[in-house]
Design a protein around this nucleic acid. Structure first.
Length: 565
RNA sequence: GCGCCUGUAGCUCAGCUGGAUAGAGCAUCGGCCUUCUAAGCCGAGGGUCCUGGGUUCGAGUCCCAGCGGGCGCACCA
């Protein structure tokens, strides 16, 4: 690709000028008069080289030899940009790479095969997954996928709390509903779970064990109820996640941290740091030593650990399991735990900034401009399943991903349910299907186009050049999205791709501009345009694959409008 | 009160390590369209980038202060 050749040449000349391994940003200027590609590297290095940007740019322009790469002109422009103009053949040569790479077009190795763990969802088994979990599931899954595409060895993990007081509360709630179901008087425990799903679990429990627990309230009985409830709710969450196309490599249980002795070992290790002290019978860690706002209790006065302790033990375990890069995807309402967990880990000698966090803001759903709030089944908020059963899995995933995690997400059901190009999901899918339909019209399979003997330099229409250059930036886009752990960067890119492809396609509408159609009589031109069609299809399909979404070969018309005469 | 996130077009939001004239979709307005099967296409208007300072050759982007919005501040989980 011309991008690679230009980067390599710039790196070479800069090395001669005494700059090692510069980071070179090559972008596609918005204004076509600024050439096909541009870099601001001269401006970025101005301080380091103590020369004016234009001077550096001029030196680079004089010493670069890029004729081989198809660069027809190098210009110094504006405050110190270097603008490159490419021959038609060089622009289009990208298409050969795309078509040859196929399924793997866009993959890179910047991760160097290093291991990385992405922990996400991690909902407690105390009810169905709600919208926040949905955003997390989509974000975690696609961040994992982006890391995979950029050369990381990714492990997807789900942590769940199967110990502690919330589990007792759950068991108590199920018991109360169970008794009510069998016609006895019973009240939900203080702070118990209100959702209808507790009735479902209670009913299932009654079906399995009959009235055995009406009389038996022993610890063993309560433990049995708890296990039953956790199993039932875990199974439901698994169904939700599977149907939402999200899978995990490992489910890690909080209880295992106690069973394996990791919690005790963590306490012992923290005590050795000398940062532990006791007040009123509670055991504290001096987390303020590492930037936390206040010290934290590890073990309460009653001898029970706080959540802080297993959190630290869990992350220590991640490190010891060999994950020296960990990304936790969580709701922003958990941000308070970040500094204390990191402080605890630093006390144990782990590096600053471990683990990384992607904290996403809250999700609200709107219909007709009004917020949709209540779900009887969940007891308080809308469940993930209610959402994706109404608007579809792919649309839900995409809407969760199309905003940066830092931004509050308004899920507009009216747009989500629209099946025209107003809905970005359909816009991208239609564009893919459209490319496929051109091949169908041509009587060809997608794989029939292997690029052999196609002269790509005939693709010199401005719309074609723009589209090709855009396709060429797909690998960089994946790298940027992975670096920023921000799938929305890819969503934006795919919408632009669909838009550029649509413009090109529509420009060739036979009723308007038949000479711009793909399927023209001129055989060499037709083959070159089929290459472009195929390349667009590959980029859209691969992009959708990273998002965990289907790339349909055809879209069926939803409803035929009745004809009015 | 303290901390984190946030404030860009009427609405929802992009804006890459600070770079060229601040972008997209929706909405509005004006043209067009019976097709490479297709749920549209082309174009236009619309901005005090919350406010005020600062750093810089250059700030929507970085720093400080203020104002508005969201979330969080337990020996809860």
């Amino acid at each position: 690709m011309p991008q690679d050749a230009i980067r390599a040449a710039l790196t070479r000349v800069l090395a001669e000028m005494g700059v090692a391994a510069p980071r070179i940003n090559l972008e596609r200027p918005r204004d076509p008069s600024h050439g096909d590609l541009a870099t601001n590297v001269a401006m970025a290095l101005s301080r380091e080289l103590k020369k004016s940007p234009r001077e550096i740019a001029q030196t680079l322009a004089d010493r670069l030899d890029l004729a081989e790469a198809g660069v027809t002109a190098v210009e110094v422009a504006g405050p110190g940009f270097l603008n490159f103009r490419l021959s038609s053949g060089a622009v289009a040569s990208t298409l050969a790479d795309i078509v040859a790479s196929g399924d793997s077009w866009g993959r890179s190795r910047v991760g160097g095969g290093e291991r990385v763990m992405v922990e996400f969802v991690s909902a407690n088994p105390t009810g169905p997954l709600h919208l926040g979990h949905g955003r997390q599931a989509a974000l975690g899954d696609v961040i994992s996928s982006l890391l995979d595409w950029t050369g990381w060895n990714v492990h997807r993990e789900y942590y769940y709390n199967d110990a502690g007081r919330q589990m007792e509360l759950l068991a108590g709630s199920v018991l109360a509903r169970y008794l009510q179901h069998l016609g006895h008087d019973a009240d939900l425990p203080e702070g118990g779970y209100q959702g209808l799903y507790v009735h479902d679990v209670a009913r299932a429990l009654a079906e399995e064990v009959g009235d055995r627990f009406v009389a038996d309230r022993s610890d063993e009985a309560m433990a049995e109820i708890r296990h039953f409830a956790v199993r039932a709710l875990r199974a439901e969450q698994d169904r939700d996640l599977t149907d939402f196309a999200v899978h995990f490599d490992e489910y890690y249980l909080e209880s295992s941290l106690y069973e394996s002795g990791r919690v005790d070992a963590t306490v012992a290790a923290l005590r050795e740091t000398g940062l532990v002290y006791e007040v009123d019978g509670a055991v504290w860690l001096r987390t303020t030593e590492f930037g936390d706002q206040k010290d934290r209790v590890m073990i309460r006065g009653n001898g029970e650990p706080t959540y802080f302790l297993p959190d630290v033990a869990y992350h220590m375990a991640k490190w010891e399991r060999g994950f020296h890069r960990v990304i936790n995807v969580q709701g922003a309402d958990h941000h308070g735990t970040v500094s204390r967990v990191r402080a605890g880990l630093r006390a144990l000698g782990l590096p600053e900034g471990y683990p990384e966090y992607v904290l996403h803001q809250m999700v609200t759903v709107e219909r007709d401009g009004q917020e949709v709030k209540f779900s009887k089944r969940a007891g308080s908020y809308t469940t993930l399943r209610e959402l994706f059963e109404e608007v579809g899995v792919d649309v839900s995933r995409y809407f969760f991903l199309m905003r940066k995690p830092d931004a509050h997400l308004v899920f507009d059901l009216d747009v989500a349910l629209d099946q025209s190009d107003k809905n970005p999901v359909y816009k991208v899918k239609y564009a893919h299907a459209r490319m496929c339909s051109i091949f169908a019209k041509a009587g060809m399979e997608l794989d029939d186009m292997d690029g052999a003997g196609v002269d790509l330099s005939v693709l010199d229409h401005p719309l074609e050049r723009e589209l090709v250059k855009h396709l060429g930036s797909f690998p960089d886009t994946l790298i940027r999205a992975a670096e920023h752990t921000s799938p929305h960067i890819l969503c934006d890119y795919l919408e632009q791709t669909a838009g550029a492809a649509n413009s090109w396609y529509h420009a060739g509408n036979p009723s308007r501009n038949p000479e711009l159609a793909v399927l023209v009589e001129d055989e060499p031109l037709r083959r070159a345009r089929l290459m472009l069609t195929r390349a667009v299809q590959v980029v859209l399909r691969n992009g959708l694959a990273v998002l965990g979404m289907e790339a349909p070969v055809r879209m069926d018309r939803p409803v035929d409008e009745p004809e009015e005469s």
